[in-house]
């Protein structure tokens, strides 16, 4: 059997270079610099593809609903009637709420610098979004990421110079305290694959499908009252001490174009974020 030394040497050299490159790219500083450079280079394509995808999705969704437009129109008119009554009641509550916010300094804009960020893509193996704001924009790990409707999307998991990775509330291992229907406490846990559930809910609590879920105040991680989603299904078992619920997250990746990063003005805010990140 003839052994080609030259060919084997080339193969061994190529393998050595590949292994060395992989090891080098796992050094955090090199990894961050490489990813930041790659994201910067690819961002124009990614950003436009993401926006085009949102538009295309909206078009096909409306096309799919064309057959039921008459029924939907009737149903929406009924809902408008009910909503007008609610608006009148809400206006009174709004005035009262504004007064309380001013009195208690709870205004979101007062406590946070809201930085508008464009979504550039989604990770291939987890509920992680990539946004175009990074450490150069004073974004830090642990900061809350919210939508224009004050819904909680997640928190900053990792920052690069110009980009950040956002761990969505549905990402595996994500957990924080929430309030259901404004009064029942529970612990939200991300399950991955766009799913999340709330556990440790008292059995005495009376819940119903559609109840709103908001961020709680116990952990001090997210601003209290941010919308998380609604109750999708309730699971109660005699064998278990607590009841649990499945949720429909308020933040829909498919519909999202932009998000806000809530950067704390309070110097303690970043510390709270890092404590949360370490415990997460």
């Amino acid at each position: 059997m003839k052994i080609s030394f030259g060919k084997n040497f080339t193969l061994a050299a190529a393998l050595f270079v590949a292994v060395a490159a992989i090891l080098a790219f796992n050094i955090p500083s090199i990894n961050s610099a490489f990813k930041n450079a790659a994201y910067s280079a690819l961002n124009p394509v990614q950003k436009n593809l993401w926006l085009a995808s949102v538009g295309t999705r909206d078009f096909f969704v409306s096309l799919g609903k064309a057959g039921s437009l008459g029924d939907e129109n009737r149903r929406l008119k009924e809902q408008i009637g009910a909503a007008q009554a609610q608006i009148a009641a809400a206006q009174n509550i709004k005035k009262e709420n504004e007064f309380l916010r001013q009195a208690l300094n709870l205004g979101l804009e007062k406590d946070f610098d809201l930085k508008l960020a464009q979504i550039a893509g989604k990770s291939v193996d987890g509920d992680i979004l990539i946004i175009n704001k990074g450490s150069k924009d004073m974004v830090q790990a642990g900061m809350a990421v919210i939508t224009a409707r004050k819904g909680l999307a997640g928190k900053i998991a990792k920052t690069y110079d110009n980009f950040s990775e956002v761990a969505m509330i549905t990402s595996e291992g994500f957990s924080f305290d929430v309030k259901i229907a404004g009064e029942v406490d529970g612990l939200l846990k991300g399950l991955g694959g766009g799913e999340a559930a709330i556990d440790l809910i008292s059995k005495d609590a009376e819940l119903k499908v559609g109840d709103s879920i908001t961020a709680g105040s116990l952990g001090g991680i997210f601003p209290e009252g941010l919308l998380i989603g609604t109750v999708k299904a309730i699971h109660e078992s005699d064998a278990k001490t607590f009841q649990s619920v499945e949720i429909s997250p308020a933040f829909e990746t498919a519909e999202a174009r932009q998000v806000f990063v809530a950067a704390g003005k309070d110097p303690m805010a970043s510390q709270i974020g890092s404590v949360f990140l370490n415990s997460h």
Partner: peptide, 21 residues
Amino acid sequence: VFCQITVAPHIAGFLGVWLEW
């Protein structure tokens, strides 16, 4: 790759979550 990270999350919403996987 670009389809995977930008298009798939949107079409999975109405064609089926399995697409994202």
